[in-house]
Design a protein around this nucleic acid. Structure first.
Lengths: 234, 234
DNA sequence: CCAGCCCAATCGATCGATCGATCGGGGATC
DNA sequence: GATCCCCGATCGATCGATCGATTGGGCTGG
């Protein structure tokens, strides 16, 4: 349990946030970079600067920690997607989903990578719950694609394959994008939205999509889904 | 003591190959499904039906095994890509790459998944060699995309991002496709080739791509890259 | 104000289990 | 008897997790 909301002890507490949040952050980083099974409980403690036994004052088992991380990240994506206006045309809806997904994966690559790659380390019941959340999120995409296809805006050979391909392509952003690189977040999201529309046989000019995304004004949505956006670079 | 299974005689070995090949196959399966670090040496031995110490008669370390598996799979992809005729037009070349990549990932999902997901478990020097092979393979894609862009066949906002997106999208096949499902390999590869061309602003009809792939006649190429397997369709 | 107590927070020590890997020897075949 | 397979036993290291003990700030009753 442990309710930590403010108290810092020990001198020299340079790190930001409470101990519990530090643990969470270190776990996200280690799980994303080395993998769940390759991350030792002592490594995690060392990254936080505490003894390994102290970890268990703040968390349950190591797997509990992984589960909570994945649930949290999954829910953020679902929250963001569900905030999209329901009466958008298919084109705008799809662009919005791409924007939210790519923005999340670009600015929080570790959280999203853990969800994308480490679900298999969950046991049966937790895996089922995690998959359920993932499926709920993918339904937003399935609905948008179906809408566009029935209305004639999109044209694809196979809707399910198109959905899988789009999600896979957009998730890849977490693996390579760096905010310190030469591509801005604005260009990145626009480029992916353009590729997504093209893949759905609905090509649009880059500037057109840029304006479309500007009009959607989704920055408040991602800000609500990922509140404590860190000032740290990376 | 009677041996449980796996008569060793060389005269054609009943269902499974030699012990070394059995180990390789079991390792590919376990590394792909559970992950490298989550796979124990005793699990691996049990899957083959031998004692864990016997493993070391056939292999080096566990990491040696992973390295060999990734090198092998990477080289097969490079071999296949390098067999594509150098004087194909960009459209046909790109379709050929998609075909080879998707076919490989669909028919050998575990080998390819290990390469795609477990490279990080390699140590520094081996990781560097593995990444080098991966980069060499991606160069085939970069060249095809560049050719198409300079010749006006393709049009993308960012060639590098397009390449990454295409590869990510095609690699995803390993994660969901089942040869026992309702989608044939022929439809799968054609659908992906169509999506790839569309993404590159070079839309083509499904039937057109089907014929294009038929004309390329790439079955001998994949058969050469993955010899000891069953290639029936197309 | 102080005495007494509580409790979050931390650590060192250690648990049983499992990890990857090694070694010497047994038994079969040629 | 030499070679090839294979296994039981075992190594040191590390795994995730728990234990008892200590610390110190904050709250309470007097």
């Amino acid at each position: 349990m442990a309710r930590a909301s403010g108290p810092r002890t020990r001198g020299g507490g340079v790190a930001t946030g409470g101990t519990e949040e530090q643990i969470r952050r270190a776990a996200v980083h280690l799980f994303a970079t080395r993998g769940f099974h390759a991350t030792g409980i002592r490594q995690l403690a060392e990254a936080v600067g505490i003894n390994s036994s102290t970890l268990y004052h703040y968390m349950g088992t190591k797997e509990d920690l992984l589960f909570e991380i994945t649930q949290d990240s999954s829910r953020r994506l679902i929250d963001a997607a569900s905030r999209l206006s329901p009466d958008l045309n298919p084109q705008a809806r799809l662009c919005g989903l791409v924007y939210l997904h790519v923005w999340s994966h670009a600015t929080h690559p570790e959280e999203t990578a853990v969800v994308d790659n480490e679900l298999r380390s969950l046991d049966g019941e937790r895996l089922a719950r995690a998959v359920e959340l993932r499926d709920r999120y993918e339904d937003f995409w399935a609905d948008a694609i179906a809408d566009g296809c029935t209305s004639g805006t999109f044209a694809v050979q196979d809707r399910r394959i198109a959905r899988i391909a789009l999600l896979q392509m957009c998730s890849g952003v977490a693996g390579w994008y760096s905010t310190s690189g030469e591509t801005s977040l604005r260009d990145l999201t626009t480029t992916y939205a353009q590729m997504a529309l093209s893949l759905l046989s609905c090509s649009r000019d880059h500037r057109t999509i840029e304006r479309l995304l500007d009009d959607l004004d989704l920055q408040p949505v991602v800000a609500a889904a990922w509140p404590e956006t860190t000032p740290s670079p990376r």
